[in-house]
């Protein structure tokens, strides 16, 4: 078992501040044989990583960065390629395969001591890109590599790392209830790719935000990772508004027919579309009450069994919005469903 170096938060702040205030150009480089005094290893349970291994990590990432414009400013395409390639490479490193790599202080060490030049090239001076956490320059890539690995047997093992946009990665991985669950995370990523083929990548940002809200809400009451694979595909495609028949054929239709339910004759798809717009507009006008918000969230989660008070709150909200003259057709759709 290889133990990884940890840089405690206070020391991380101090070293980072010194690096940024002195100026990245003055960085003296990484010396694997001379780690900062504050670096610690867990006292038992393995051997501290060898200096040679740290150097190999440095060389591996540096080579990927150089192939993608490191040294220059780096175009958006180059930075994106760096992210995808570095994520795959990091996920494949055996020294990073243990629970040690889940620690923020390990990644603070990696970004601040080993790769401040790469973090600076990729993101500039933003401290969250150096300190440990989901936004750490390399921690986020390692996590992506771990979550979105299709497996060694796949012909396109790292395809998801190239296909998802930065926004999609953030939407999935920065939500602990979804991003911490590899079964769900990879299923959502695959659903995102199918949806982007259907809707076009340009439409995906707002759709992904809506979809993630729905997935999270539904996962609270239904264990989505418990579903058979084909059912999970169908549920996620419905949420991403990707026509099931177009992509999967009939095997998922049993689930779809139940999922694509209606409320007073209004199709679920029409309901969620209307609810999404109403929710956005009601927020903008500051009209939401906790109950009307809960009612709209339930509809977005395709949970149509509203309580009486939620129904009343929703009616009141629709009346107020109607009075202002907002979203007439959406109010009609929702009104038909709940009255």
């Amino acid at each position: 078992m290889t133990l990884l170096p940890r840089l405690p938060p206070l020391a991380a702040e101090r070293i980072l501040e010194s690096y940024l205030s002195t100026g990245p150009d003055q960085w003296r480089g990484f010396n694997a044989n001379e780690l900062p005094e504050a670096v610690r290893f867990t006292p038992t349970g393995g051997s501290p990583i060898a200096a040679r291994k740290l150097e190999e990590l440095r060389e591996g990432i540096l080579a990927i960065a150089k192939n993608n414009g490191f040294g220059g400013k780096g175009t958006r395409a180059e930075l994106s390629c760096f992210d995808a390639q570095a994520a795959a490479w990091l996920a494949d490193q055996s020294v990073l395969a243990s629970g040690e790599a889940l620690r923020d202080d390990v990644w603070a060490f990696v970004a601040i001591v080993m790769f401040p030049d790469i973090a600076n090239w990729r993101f500039g001076d933003s401290p969250e890109r150096y300190l440990g956490g989901v936004r750490n320059t390399l921690q986020r890539l390692w996590m992506r590599g771990k979550l979105f690995d299709r497996g060694q047997e796949s012909l396109d093992r790292w395809g998801l790392l190239e296909k998802l946009t930065e926004d999609a990665f953030v939407q999935i991985t920065e939500r602990p209830s979804l991003g911490g669950n590899p079964v769900l995370a990879i299923a959502i990523a695959e659903a995102w790719v199918r949806a982007s083929l259907h809707h076009g990548k340009g439409a995906m940002e707002s759709l992904t935000r809506r979809a993630m809200l729905q997935i999270r809400a539904r996962n609270e009451v239904r264990s989505l990772d418990e579903l058979p694979a084909e059912s999970l595909v169908a549920v996620l495609d419905l949420i991403f508004e990707t026509p099931a028949a177009e992509l999967h054929g009939s095997s998922t239709m049993e689930v779809n027919s139940r999922e694509a339910s209606t409320l007073n004759g209004v199709a679920s798809h029409a309901l969620t579309t209307a609810a999404t717009r109403l929710l956005d507009e009601a927020r903008r006008w500051n009209l939401l009450s906790p109950k009307s918000n809960a009612a709209l969230q339930s509809i977005l989660a395709l949970e149509f069994q509203l309580t009486l008070s939620e129904r009343n709150a929703l009616r009141y909200l629709l009346e107020r919005m109607e009075g202002i003259g907002l979203l007439e057709s959406e109010i009609r759709v929702l009104g038909t469903a709940i009255y």
Binding site: G99, L102, R103, D104, K146, P176, S177, G180, N181, P182, V183
Partner: peptide
């Protein structure tokens, strides 16, 4: 069964 810092597990 999951692990990692935070209120929810970092990784299941």
């Amino acid at each position: 069964f999951g692990t990692g810092q935070g209120r929810l597990p970092r990784l299941v």
